[in-house]
Design a protein around this nucleic acid. Structure first.
Lengths: 248, 248
DNA sequence: TCTCGCCACTTGTATAGACAACTTCGGCGG
DNA sequence: CCGCCGAAGTTGTCTATACAAGTGGCGAGA
């Protein structure tokens, strides 16, 4: 096993984590496989035991590894895949329903990150971010307002795309593999811009899905998807092959 | 600030974490408050800086604190969150946030299935179903109205339970393994009953999660969970999906 | 007055060493 | 053969130290 490159910008424990995850994903260490001990990793990677320990401990809490004191470290068994919120292209969804999809690019610009956006993207406040606001229609009626803040470090050419032909996620997904996603769902009364775009009444609620996606530990983008609450719903079904435990 | 008791069985960093969370929950450190620096905590609690640092770092990743390098540590603003991709007992969720859970049983009765309920439970219209309406509170404020229609073929003794002590989920889960679940999420303006129970204003939207669960191909129950949209959110994160495909 | 640079302070990382807690396994005595 | 004990190896924690990196403020100089 080669020593970890120390001239990387990322912290050492991060490099160790990435190295281990890479080995798992590459199939070098299948499920249930016993990993080298901390002392062996320490020698093999040329880091201190505390650094290796931190990497292993964090991978354990993240579900990659199972550690047993006095015994060893093992590759965790995969948890049953739950796909309540499938990540899909809205254009594909609409096409599957046999409706016509079209969209309007309302705004497409580079701007400084507000504190909130900066935090969401793990950037410094004021750092440049790429911003887009797109209205999606299904058979002529508005169904989604997609506001997106994109990390320029991941997709520097984002603003040059024609989003009436290629959807934002299609473009972003082509730039690199996404390895994590986070969803937050809220109900809210929309602001004037979203209300206007969706054609909602003054008291009509709105379903807001905020989705962040990661690629290689980098926050790629944060999307705020607003749906007309009365006309749209999110649905999903999970089948459990294994037991769900004692409590439902 | 008193020194951490060292004769505890729990590890020191755990005691430090519990101490800090306790202070936050007690209101000593309100949201946005700046915490003592690591060096101050080190002196005050009688632990090494690395131990204090580990406690603070973990509390940061758990969402209790916000840390800014070169500046300081602050109490994060907390918004109650419900796991989206997991099916969990609301009582456990609230307990995990360190808040007090209590609930009020508004209605508990046998009734004939309306066409809509009959379809949801795959029963004949007018067939007897068991109905419950429960208000859940977190630290005194209402967070969820749980309306549930239960298939009597699966849980004939449903109405005899004391749902102030045992949640419906807990009871149903104990009767048999759940092998499928379906979620539908909507935003809507609540009806007068739900609005009254949640203490919402006339134009405040509501997050409605409709969940059906199956056991052995039998529809066990349909739950309609209403959350105050402005005060509650559903969140979920999927880590390191192997392949998210090309689509969004 | 404005600006630049320095300094104090904060958090982030890395290391070496020590000990504690736990598991496994093999040897030894009954 | 069975059971107990201890050695070796593993993970878990704690400490002291050092340096890196980032923030904010203060003061000197233009």
């Amino acid at each position: 096993m080669a020593a970890i490159r120390r001239h990387e910008t990322a912290p050492l424990y991060r490099q160790v984590k990435d190295h281990i995850v890479g080995r798992i994903l590459a199939g070098d260490w299948p499920e249930g496989e016993r990993l080298p001990s901390e002392n062996e990793l320490t020698r093999a990677l040329g880091v201190s035991r505390m650094t290796a320990h931190r990497a292993l401990r964090e991978l354990s809490t993240e579900g990659w590894l199972t550690r047993v004191q006095g015994d060893g470290t093992y590759v965790a068994e995969v948890k049953p895949q739950s796909a309540l919120l499938e990540i899909r292209d809205i254009r594909d969804e609409i096409a599957e329903r046999g409706r016509a999809h079209d969209c309007r690019v309302v705004r497409l610009a580079r701007q400084g990150a507000t504190p909130e956006v900066a935090q969401a993207l793990s950037l410094a406040p004021g750092a440049p971010v790429l911003h887009s606001l797109v209205l999606h229609r299904e058979g002529g009626t508005p169904v989604q307002v997609e506001e997106r803040h994109v990390n320029p470090a991941f997709a520097p050419g984002y603003l040059d795309q024609d989003f009436t032909r290629t959807t934002a996620f299609e473009y972003l997904g082509g730039l690199g593999p996404m390895d994590a996603a986070e969803h937050v769902i809220e109900a809210e009364l929309p602001g004037p811009v979203v209300r206007e775009l969706l054609g909602l009444g003054p008291a009509e609620p709105c379903l807001l899905v905020t989705r962040r996606t990661w690629s290689n530990s980098l926050v790629v983008s944060r999307a705020r998807l607003s749906y007309p609450g009365s006309r749209y719903r999110l649905a999903g079904r999970q089948d459990y092959l294994a037991n769900m435990g004692t409590s439902q």
